[in-house]
């Protein structure tokens, strides 16, 4: 028991700063005044953690990358002009959407990313990929929510990707904008030919949260990274299953019937382009 104790405290001493050392001394004192039962509990935790360190040998990393395209051509904000299936012309100045609750599936024991909330923002290349660790093995599919799950839409102030600072939380009607596309089109009768799709709604009939499942056979090797490259086709927003033309619907900014139609369309925009193993 004594030996165990020493190890706990000398090892951290190797790299912690003076200030932390001071604190550690406090903690150290605390340790000796800790009742036996708690110390036993500590020992249990230690053993548990040791196992988890060894267990880590069985884990690899899954990296998810997004390439936003229009009709397969990589999206360029502002400057490029595109055509939708109604021969309407448009350009895009802003594209942001939430990816959450990411899960990789295999025969047993699906692997969920913890605290899985990501805001993909076409204007910020660092937002176009994220990674998490998971058990090694052969996976058969991959799924995520396009949007923020309903619980987080009504759980108060959030942080990180869900921070209202990201300008993806409605202030007049609580809830996240799940998908935001802004730009312009000569076919829009709005001010400055603006087009604006702020798609949200998390409850009941207005729910636009989409579960996206991509069949994907890929392997995760312990200690290595597997990258899944997902391509989007933004043009899907206007076509199928619902016809949405810019001339008729240049703007959607409230939850409701139109938002649901737009979401049904853009939920078809994802496809798996490639899965590859990157040796670490």
């Amino acid at each position: 028991m004594n030996k165990q104790r020493n190890r706990i405290f000398f090892v951290p001493g190797l790299w912690i700063t003076d200030q932390q050392l001071l604190r550690r001394t406090l903690v150290h004192k605390q340790y000796y005044s800790t009742p036996l039962l708690q110390r036993f509990f500590l020992l249990l935790i230690s053993i548990f953690f040791s196992f988890s360190v060894f267990a880590q040998k069985q884990t690899g990393t899954l990296k998810i990358s997004f390439i936003n395209t229009v009709n397969g051509i990589p999206l360029v904000l502002n400057d490029s002009v595109y055509n939708n299936s109604f021969k309407e012309t448009y350009s895009i100045s802003k594209l942001k959407y939430y990816i959450s609750n990411v899960r990789a599936n295999k025969a047993s024991n699906p692997q969920k990313e913890k605290n899985s909330y990501h805001l993909v923002n076409a204007a910020d290349t660092t937002s176009l990929h994220f990674s998490f660790s998971l058990k090694s093995g052969n996976y058969t599919s991959f799924d995520f929510l396009l949007g923020v799950d309903s619980l987080r839409n009504c759980s108060g102030a959030q942080s990180g990707a869900l921070d209202p600072l990201n300008d993806m939380f409605w202030t007049w009607n609580s809830g996240y904008v799940m998908f935001k596309l802004e730009g312009s089109s000569p076919q829009s009768g709005q001010v400055n030919n603006r087009i604006e799709y702020h798609i949200g709604g998390y409850a009941g009939a207005n729910n636009v949260i989409k579960k996206i499942s991509l069949p994907a056979a890929f392997e995760v090797i312990a200690g290595n990274t597997t990258e899944l490259i997902i391509e989007t086709d933004i043009n899907k927003l206007w076509l199928g299953p619902n016809d949405i033309s810019i001339v008729q619907s240049p703007v959607c900014s409230t939850p409701g019937a139109l938002a649901k139609k737009v979401a049904a369309n853009y939920s078809k925009m994802f496809s798996l382009k490639n899965a590859m193993i990157i040796k670490n």
Binding site: I8, R24, F49
Partner: peptide, 11 residues
Amino acid sequence: ISLAVLFFTAQ
């Protein structure tokens, strides 16, 4: 190192 960090935080 990871063990040590974990012990420290557990403590």
